[in-house]
Design a protein around this nucleic acid. Structure first.
Lengths: 124, 124
DNA sequence: ACAATATATGTACAGGTGAGCATATGTAAT
DNA sequence: ATTACATATGCTCACCTGTACATATATTGT
């Protein structure tokens, strides 16, 4: 019927498809990097930080206030965001003003919110 | 100099900024949903599955072969991908052919790979 | 030098998460 | 009905992760 049947376990039609897919698959390391990136976006605290930084640059203790979390926890998360190049900061006196590092970051943010927003309760 | 200084702890200039940011921030629940979405993309196994499904629809045991993982583990991950509406499947005899549920999914994939690809070893 | 404030970091721990094993369910063939 | 195969699920466990607490570092003012 569809040309896709065949014993999946032993050999056959599927193998051909698998080979084609295997060829096109990105390298392991590239997938790992992309997963790492998504993982950083995948924590509510970090996502909040990124979202508020997409509105305006902000200093650490204000971030802590805005998301109601300890300064320590915020600082730890900011380190992760720094290491993954999602945020940058400028130091001014005692304060550190953080901001998004890259247009890309807000693009990913928007796309995420867009997709998360549309299909919630409804459907199917 | 920048109009942003002022005691961060007690009160003042920052408060005004904080209020403006707080107003514009999405609701907690919306951020939670977006984070949940990113989290699903943030696991290498799931990202591999999504990536290979972006190339072609595929049955469970072939996925297991392609990413070299137990059938059980794959099935568990597919459930998560189903529940988050990232994949759909059609049953044909004993086999279940999975595919991406939505254009959006491959958009997010591409954007992720794009960003993950560019800045790795280099820069700054 | 000392105090005060902002931020960073080391450590510990509770809670979460992915993988495998065993097994259940569903489907087709004999 | 029985067997064989494909997939799904309950369970367990090793590992990871985010947070708070305590403390270190840096900067400014007195």
């Amino acid at each position: 019927m569809s040309g896709l049947e065949g014993n999946c376990e032993v050999h056959n039609p599927h193998d051909e498809l698998c080979d084609r897919i295997a060829e096109k698959l990105p390298e392991e390391s590239q997938i790992a990097r992309a997963a790492e990136l998504f993982k950083v976006f995948g924590d509510p605290t970090r996502l909040k930080i990124l979202t508020l930084l997409s509105i305006s640059e902000c200093c650490v203790c204000d971030i802590a206030k805005l998301i109601d979390l300890s300064q320590s926890a915020v600082s730890h998360q900011l380190r992760i965001l720094r290491q993954t190049r999602l945020v940058k900061y400028r130091k001014q006196g005692k304060e550190a003003f953080y901001s998004l590092d890259d247009e890309h970051v807000s693009e990913i943010l928007s796309l995420g919110f867009e997709h998360a927003g549309e299909e919630q309760g409804g459907g199917r």
